[in-house]
């Protein structure tokens, strides 16, 4: 029962029972696979993948993902109205320095195979970030490389499956280091700084590449008018073969006190966009229980209607120091 496998991040042998790598602290895959039916709990699943009791098809692996690593957690949920989860999420810890990397991507549902785009984007970006940070790259520089790598990974999807409506997606990444937070993005997925101190300002760190936000930024409409427009959510920049030259936006902040970095797709912020409201909703729980916090925010969006895929990642700041390798129960 103890066939050891290599950790996908550092190659050290890990036991199949481990949730995290003893050496690098990397998460060893998604949560334990669900046994039996996710809808009614019956254990017998037929050969076609349907529950033998209630008939529900075993949900696609991506319908609901709960990720839980030391000092970072994420949830991605299909929501209530979409047939697939076209969002994707990747979280990593960089061994040694204790930096946390989070990448979220939202597939553009009107493009072909958007779930391929978002999956390719988060994998390419997370791998590039981890490699660059290990090399000692500056987080801002690493972030730009990561977004560019994600853009080429998504653009290349059309090589295998030619398409008139190339797979497309957004991207937002956050590198949470001991002294700073570096965010990079293209599209309308967001990162927020939520300050632990209720009197200190919380803020949205990203500026959407969307029609509404660009109208407001250009002074052509006020926020209310712009977001009420039918074109409000139209993207003005994205990743994909038809995206043209991708110019990653990046921002670095140096928080003076503790707080939380929240990275999310519009499936969450459509229901709750104001940074102070998000802070009030999230803190202080998120400081000590990031997974519980990410789940609570996801539940909030589901209760509001869950009209879109919902993806939420929560990283307490300052990041938790790297595991010393002796904490396994």
């Amino acid at each position: 029962m103890t066939t050891n496998l290599p950790c996908p991040d550092c190659g050290t042998d890990v036991s199949p029972d481990d949730q995290f790598c003893e050496a690098c602290g990397g998460g060893l895959g998604v949560q334990a696979p669900v046994d039996g039916c996710a809808a009614c709990g019956a254990t017998e699943i037929d050969q076609d993948g349907f529950c033998a009791r209630c008939g529900f098809r075993r949900p696609a692996a991506r319908d609901r993902i709960d990720l839980d690593l030391p000092g970072v957690a994420g949830v991605s949920d299909r929501g209530l109205r979409h047939e697939h989860n076209e969002d994707a999420i990747a979280v990593r810890r960089v061994d040694g320095c204790g930096e946390v990397v989070v990448v979220v991507s939202d597939g553009v549902s009107t493009s072909d195979n958007p779930e391929d785009a978002s999956a390719a984007a988060v994998e390419a970006a997370a791998d590039t970030l981890v490699a660059a940070l290990r090399e000692g790259d500056d987080p801002a520089r690493a972030t730009r490389s990561a977004v560019v790598a994600a853009a080429s990974a998504v653009a290349e999807l059309v090589r295998d499956k030619p398409s008139d409506n190339a797979p497309a997606c957004t991207i937002v990444s956050a590198v949470v280091s001991a002294d700073r937070v570096t965010v990079g993005w293209v599209g309308d997925s967001r990162a927020y700084w939520l300050d632990r101190d209720p009197d200190a300002p919380s803020s949205c760190l990203t500026i959407d590449d969307s029609w509404a936000t660009q109208m407001v930024a250009a002074g052509l409409a006020d926020e209310e008018t712009a977001f009420a427009d039918s074109r409000a959510h139209a993207l003005t920049a994205w990743l994909g073969a038809d995206a043209g030259e991708v110019r990653p936006h990046t921002i670095t902040v140096r928080p003076t006190g503790p707080g939380v970095v929240l990275v999310c797709s519009d499936g969450l912020w459509n229901y709750l966009w104001d940074a102070d409201s998000l802070a009030a909703q999230t803190l202080p729980l998120a400081m000590t229980a990031p997974l519980a916090s990410a789940r609570a925010l996801t539940r909030f969006a589901l209760e509001r209607g869950g009209h879109d895929n919902i993806t939420v990642a929560v990283v307490p700041f300052p990041p938790r120091p790297a595991s010393t390798g002796s904490t396994q129960e």
Partner: peptide, 15 residues
């Protein structure tokens, strides 16, 4: 006749 489920859910209504 089956119990309705969420949008996007797939159910085996009969074998």
């Amino acid at each position: 006749e089956v119990n309705p489920a969420k949008v996007g859910d797939v159910m085996l209504a009969g074998r």
